[in-house]
């Protein structure tokens, strides 16, 4: 079956001190209908940039996006004009942002902002939009939605605001929902509720979800497939079960051992020694070279390609010889 989304060789560059520097490059992935794909990685590794670049939500003056192809429902959206792109946003691909306090307009009521999502491509008759909004607020678990409809974002709690964000992304029933760290700004019990809600709504609507997070707990809870990012590149892409039981890339292994476990008695948390290279000073070879426990001579000067291993792919020379066996 043809994938819902097929991204080939996506690259995003930022202007830093008058020079263009690649923040994300060589990104390839596919998303199937109804699937939940998560992108994990530490802060600044390019997770959000990858997501936002597909919808062209990065500021044009400082960010430059290129790709061989971004096929969405068989159509290459990387070649669309800006006007055509507005039809993809919201309707084809919806987005939920991290910080619901700043991501909602402080001077517009919740209702007005939600109405707008329904009205923008004329999916609902203006006379019925208020009722549609109130129904959707109720569906995302907001109590007394008639009252909330009239309120401003600062009058709502963080969890409730995030529910409003979700409602806004769902209003046009997009085929894909990109959720950029939707639970990071929330406390743990609310996090669980929001994830539960996302799952429930996904079951109902059949949308595919691209979930961006740095929380391995969230990943285990939600994902069908996982992409691990490091310093602007995908280093591994595996089905959830495989990734947790048999991580391939040394970075993935490091990440998993860094998760504290309650079934083991440990004094100190495992950490990956060293720091991420900066954008302006990327190594020529493997980007994880400095911190890698299994590094080899050739990793220093040669960038490994993505090797396929069963359902997984991994960017590491350890799998070079075994590839294609």
């Amino acid at each position: 079956m043809e994938p819902l989304l097929d991204v080939r060789n996506l690259k995003v560059e930022f202007k830093i001190d008058k020079k263009w520097v690649a923040a994300v490059e060589d990104v390839h992935f596919q998303l199937k209908a109804g699937e939940t794909l998560t992108i994990v990685g530490e802060s600044g590794c390019g997770k959000s940039v990858t997501a936002m670049s597909m919808l062209r939500l990065l500021p044009k003056t400082t960010a430059q996006i290129s790709a061989d192809e971004i096929l969405f429902q068989g159509r290459d959206i990387s070649k669309l004009s800006d006007t055509e792109m507005t039809k993809i946003r919201g309707q084809g691909i919806g987005m939920i942002f991290q910080d619901s306090m700043t991501s909602l307009n402080p001077v517009k009521t919740v209702g007005k902002q939600l109405d707008e999502a329904f009205l923008v491509h004329g999916s609902v008759d203006p006379a019925e939009v208020k009722q549609a909004s109130i129904n959707l607020l109720r569906e995302v678990g907001i109590s007394s939605p008639e009252q909330r409809y009239k309120e401003y974002p600062h009058q709502l709690s963080g969890g409730m605001r995030q529910r409003v964000m979700i409602a806004m992304a769902l209003a046009q029933q997009p085929a894909i929902i990109i959720a950029d760290e939707p639970t990071t700004a929330l406390d743990v019990t609310i996090q669980a509720q929001i994830l539960e809600l996302l799952k429930k709504l996904q079951e109902k609507s059949g949308s595919a979800i691209i979930l961006i997070t740095h929380d391995m707990g969230v990943v285990a809870e939600m994902a069908d497939r996982i992409i691990v990012m490091y310093a602007g590149m995908f280093v591994e892409c595996s089905p959830t079960k495989d990734l947790f039981t048999n991580p391939l890339h040394p970075y993935t292994r490091g990440l998993l051992t860094a998760i504290p476990r309650k079934d083991m008695d440990i004094d100190r948390l495992n950490v990956i020694e060293g720091t991420v290279p900066t954008l302006t000073d990327m190594p020529k070879g493997c980007r994880f070279y400095d911190r890698c426990e299994s590094r080899m001579e050739r990793c220093k000067n040669e960038l490994p390609p993505l090797y396929t291993r069963g359902e997984s792919s991994v960017r590491c020379f350890l799998f070079d010889a075994k590839d294609g066996e």
Partner: peptide, 24 residues
């Protein structure tokens, strides 16, 4: 961020200017 949100809904730039940006 809320301008980005407005854009992610699929609103046109002119609508974003008049409905979201100006009042703020």
């Amino acid at each position: 961020d809320y301008i980005r949100t407005a854009r992610s809904k699929g609103l046109f730039e002119s609508v974003i200017l008049f409905r979201h940006a100006l009042q703020n």
